[in-house]
């Protein structure tokens, strides 16, 4: 196992972990009962999922400039996504009045709505 292979394996391991969080985030968004808990799941996919993928790709980067751009992309997504989620959450709070009572709709109840 040459140095490259070790780095490659580690990089792939990180990317695979990132995949898991993406999957977790997506399934969470699909299965969780109401808007606010889905927002919670969404942020997992953003910071950890993308973060691990970026980390993995950094190991394979050709030069420092590429590492910098990868890092910048991740930080930007982190920032933009958290702000957007905050805005949506606040707007949801306003729409639901005060405390976010868990809307009585389970995942199965959604089928009625799916045309």
């Amino acid at each position: 196992m040459s140095g490259d292979d070790v780095r490659g394996a580690l990089s792939l391991l990180l990317i695979a972990a990132g995949m898991l969080f993406f999957l977790a985030g997506s399934v969470g968004v699909l299965r969780l009962p109401d808007l606010l808990s889905r927002l919670h799941a969404l942020t997992k996919a953003d910071n950890l999922g993308l973060g691990l993928v970026v980390l993995g790709l950094m190991l394979q980067a050709d030069d420092a400039f590429e590492v910098l751009r990868l890092l910048l992309v991740w930080l930007l997504v982190l920032f933009a996504s958290s702000v957007a989620c905050y805005l949506v959450a606040r707007s949801a709070l306003r729409a639901h009045g005060d405390a976010p009572t868990a809307a009585p709709e389970g995942p199965d109840e959604d089928t009625r709505d799916g045309r």
Partner: peptide, 27 residues
């Protein structure tokens, strides 16, 4: 979720998630 999301907030947050997914694919 975009297709089913009962409220428009759900659809918007799903779009947010898909944006991150697209960034990951591009990288």
């Amino acid at each position: 979720r975009v297709e089913r999301g009962p409220s428009n907030g759900d659809r918007m947050l799903a779009a947010q998630l898909l944006g991150t997914g697209a960034v990951a694919v591009l990288l």
